[in-house]
Amino acid sequence: MKITRTKAFKIFFTPIWESNPISGQILGICSALAVTVQLKTAIVMSLALTFVLACSNLLISLMRKLIPRNIRIIVELTVIATLVIFADQVLKAFLYDVSKQLSIFVGLIITNCIILGRAETYALGNPPFHSLLDGIGNGLGYSQILITVGVLREFFGAGKLFGFQVIPDAFYAAGYEDMGFMVLAPGAFIAIGLIVWLQKTVSKE
């Protein structure tokens, strides 16, 4: 059997493109918009979310037979909140500047619908290994969109990538100007709208 036909492969790769959490399932949009002004914050946020999602899926799947049905949401939130606190403390200790820029959005991973959504629909009914793969896959799908939007906004909005100037000075001398619009809130909404349009058109063919 080829590796691309196995179940594990499918679980891992479908959420990255076809049923992408942001553009396909419309989950977790808040943070996708807010942290993408710069590429650096977008990447740190993606890592934090992928970590929390993978661990929460794994833990909830391990406990899925112990969790009583009626109080499952509270149990899930407790697991997620604990992981988020952990991620937040690590960011504060090692990447203080970035964690200041992300401000409240690391904390808001708790209410990010991707995590609760995957826990509810997948981890509660599937074995740990597949849930872990599903978590990582969805995390990467989210990261993919976040990084694309981050690149677009930083490149067009500030002419930089990772804080280094990419567009040469000669362009500015010739009259090129940064689109200040991309750095502001409306730019994020419109950039995501256009990316979803592109993705839907491409994947249909």
Binding site: S23, I26, L184, A185, P186, G187, A188, F189, I190, I192, G193, L194, V196, W197, L198, K200, T201, K204
Partner: peptide
């Protein structure tokens, strides 16, 4: 391809 989600995001952008 822009139906539902895509167009809502762009309208929200204009509102913003």
């Amino acid at each position: 391809g822009l139906e539902n989600f895509g167009i809502s995001m762009i309208i929200t952008g204009l509102m913003a």
